[in-house]
């Protein structure tokens, strides 16, 4: 009796193994994400799987924010028939070790979301990057604001609340020394300057990309500048949303004109702009709180990544027009401005 039972268990195990070992004919593609606890990356990963899934068997791995785990995942998963891997590095410097390892094994790699150093990209010619340029997002934010203020630096419209011809601004910076934060802030200010707009920076605060920290920071700023503020520019949506929550408590975004909604025409409305295009940000725009955001277009990036992977595998002859290869190895995806249609 006992023998029979064991026999049955063994048979079941073998059957299970046989089922698992069936591999489909599509080429295999490894997708390595830095951290699925980041909602933006979780969504991005889903989009890549959806788009690339048509022509690849996609295997996804989450490094849980650890570069050594990611390195080992890549090494462990690779095999002779691996076509191409797609890597979102945990640490942009971590790309160095990844590129060296993949070069030894001759497996091409597409990086996304975190751009490796140019020197590391130059280590090997089978390395590509798909992403967006931080400078563009800062400039687009500035353009959204200039549109709102009437596009004429000589004569600002009613959003220049005190009518002094200058825009009193609070800047929320992601992180001191963070490449994207520095570039977004600097490029945005440069764009204003080029068009002749005068920005008075009331405060430049670092809130570490974080909604709760931005909430606290804006609380402090309000003590000194509540009446002077005419604009808040944030390096990302999360901080913009935190700022809005605090501003609402301080009496901004009311329906003073009694038209039944929060809107720009109201005297308590204050323009706040973010970057990323989070779903919550889109909701805040629809509800009239957030003036606008600049969308980091992950879906277009996912399409570009899938096309590039097919090109590398030889299953596609050329990239579509929207995705031109710059310097032979970069595909830059444009940010998309996104404002409420009031």
């Amino acid at each position: 009796m006992i023998h029979k039972k064991w026999l049955r268990i063994c048979m079941a195990c073998l059957l299970l193994c046989a089922l698992v070992s069936c591999r489909p004919a599509k080429p295999e593609l490894g997708l390595f994400l830095y951290n699925e606890a980041d909602p933006y990356i979780l969504e991005f990963g889903r989009q890549i799987i959806e788009v690339a899934g048509a022509s690849f068997m996609v295997h996804k791995f989450d490094a849980a924010n650890s570069q050594p785990i990611q390195n080992e995942q890549i090494e462990s998963w690779l095999r002779a028939d691996t076509g191409v891997v797609i890597v979102n590095p945990v640490d942009r410097l971590g790309a160095y070790a990844v590129i060296n390892r993949l070069r030894q094994l001759d497996v091409p790699v597409i990086f996304f979301n975190r751009e490796p150093l140019p020197a590391d990209m130059a280590l090997w010619d089978e390395v590509w990057y798909v992403g967006a340029q931080a400078a563009q997002s800062g400039r687009m934010q500035a353009e959204l604001v200039m549109n709102l203020f009437g596009n004429n630096p000589e004569q600002l419209n009613e959003y220049d609340r005190n009518g002094d011809g200058r825009i009193q601004t609070v800047l929320l910076k992601g992180e001191q020394g963070h490449q994207d934060a520095e570039i977004r802030t600097a490029e945005g200010l440069k764009a204003f300057e080029e068009k002749g707009f005068v920005i008075d920076v009331l405060a430049l605060e670092v809130a570490n990309w974080n909604q709760a920290q931005a909430y606290d920071t804006i609380g402090r700023v309000l003590r000194d500048h509540q009446d002077a503020m005419e604009l808040v520019i944030s390096n990302n949506d999360a901080m913009a949303l935190g700022a809005i929550n605090r501003l609402r408590q301080a009496g901004f975004f009311k329906d003073n004109n009694g038209n039944g909604q929060v809107d720009r025409a109201d005297s308590s409305w204050l323009p706040v702009v973010g970057i990323d295009g989070l779903r919550e940000a889109e909701e805040a725009i629809a509800d009239g709180f957030l003036y606008g955001t600049v969308k980091n277009d992950s879906y277009s990036m996912a399409i570009a990544i899938a096309e590039l992977a097919e090109l590398i595998m030889g299953t596609r002859d050329s990239l579509s027009v929207a995705h031109t290869l710059m310097d032979g190895r970069y595909i830059w995806i444009d940010y998309l401005p996104f404002v409420s249609q009031q």
């Binding site: 570069q67 390195n71 640490d91 410097l93 971590g94």
Partner: peptide, 16 residues
């Protein structure tokens, strides 16, 4: 050994 193995080090290295 770990810094060179990973190719970079920061204050989160070694966590866990």
């Amino acid at each position: 050994l770990e810094a060179a193995r990973i190719g970079s080090a920061n204050n989160g290295t070694g966590f866990g």
